[in-house]
């Protein structure tokens, strides 16, 4: 496989010469994270058991599991903060344990909530990261200001980190992962310690990162966060991978409940409108929550959701809000986790 190559530069040069092989460039330049039989043991306790996972492309993959499932252990192995008992952690074809510097050259990570040297200002802390990452001197200042603006910390740029709250430090940490414009970002519960507004802002940042051809691997135990941000999900418990795939496929496979959404209207919904809604293809049931809100259960996944939303809007009955719930993901999660107990 292309991503298993040890020296990507050599391969690129080869491809430049070999015209016929140019087609492979797309695959070669994919951002790839690969865990091969990754195992981590602490004495008799197995934190990670034979994890095999291959993530590639530009997307956000949620890493779901309860506390102690092995999420952070996996991410720490990928950043060489801890070493596997056996198996390999590979980033862009390079084994992290064999050549950490090269493996992480295009990968950034936020593991737990790191402390930043308290006497440093935000600018200095990010300069340290920028220098370590080899950001050219001419670009450093603008890049720092850019990432700080992205996490809404511009006003604090020249303030010492020591005075910051946990949430503010986490924002600086997130900003530090954006320095050097890495193609792969590993995030370990990035919204941890943030207030609801901060959590929403971080989710927006992660969503915006997806648009920039990045592979984001984000651990979380917040189902709504994963449902909101991620394209794919990997579920882990007791160190074992339970499922991996696109959100839709995983929920289709493991969930036993229907999709649902809450629709809000600007005016009251009477019985005739209610029955019109229930006749839309894909809708299983409509439950009135209050005079202007209904809960719709439907089948058919995203396509069905799209159709129902378009139809509701076309009915001109005052649709002002449509929010899908993460019930199916939650059900999937509970089914899978329950099975491992």
């Amino acid at each position: 496989m292309i991503y298993a190559l040890q020296d990507r530069n050599i391969e690129k040069r080869f491809i430049l010469i070999n015209y016929m092989a140019v087609y492979e460039v797309g695959k070669l330049d994919d951002n790839v994270i690969e865990a091969i039989n990754l195992t981590k043991k602490y004495g008799s306790f197995t934190a990670l058991s034979d994890l095999n996972l291959n993530l590639s492309g530009s997307k956000c993959v949620g890493f779901l599991g309860p506390n102690g499932a092995g999420k952070t252990t996996t991410l720490k192995i990928f950043t060489d903060l801890i070493r596997p008992s056996s198996g390999q952690a590979i980033i862009n074809g390079i084994n992290v344990q064999q050549n950490k510097k090269k493996a992480l050259s295009d990968c950034s990570a936020l593991i737990e909530t790191p402390e930043i040297y308290p006497s440093m200002t935000v600018r200095e802390a990010l300069s340290l990261v920028a220098e370590l990452r080899g950001v050219p001197r001419s670009e450093r200042s603008s890049q720092i200001e850019e990432v700080v603006a992205e996490v809404k910390m511009t006003d604090w740029l020249d303030k010492s980190v020591g005075k910051f709250s946990k949430g503010m430090k986490q924002r600086v940490n997130i900003a530090s992962t954006l320095i050097g414009n890495p193609s792969i970002i590993l995030l370990d519960e990035p919204t941890s310690g943030l207030d609801p507004r901060g959590m929403a802002e971080v989710r927006d940042i992660v969503k915006s990162l997806k648009k920039k051809d990045r592979l984001i691997f984000m651990s979380s135990h917040l189902l709504n966060e994963v449902a909101d941000v991620c394209d794919e999900v990997a579920m882990i418990d007791h160190g074992k991978l339970l499922a991996y795939g696109p959100l839709e496929e995983i929920t289709d496979k493991f969930s036993t409940v229907d999709d649902s959404a809450e629709a809000q209207f600007s005016r009251a919904i009477d019985e005739s409108i209610n029955s019109q809604i229930s006749r839309i293809d894909g809708i299983v049931s409509v439950e009135k929550l209050d005079s202007r809100t209904v809960k719709i259960k439907y089948t058919g996944g995203l396509k069905s959701q799209e159709y129902i939303l378009a139809t509701l809007a076309g009915m001109q009955i005052g649709l002002v809000g449509f929010k899908s719930s993460s019930t199916r993901l939650e059900d999937t999660y509970l089914n899978l986790i329950k099975e491992t107990l």
């Binding site: 950490k100 992480l104 950034s108 936020l110 402390e115 930043i116 370590l132 530090s176």
Partner: peptide, 9 residues
């Protein structure tokens, strides 16, 4: 503080 530095390349 080690997490801030050691997880870099």
């Amino acid at each position: 503080t080690g997490f801030f530095i050691a997880s870099r390349p």
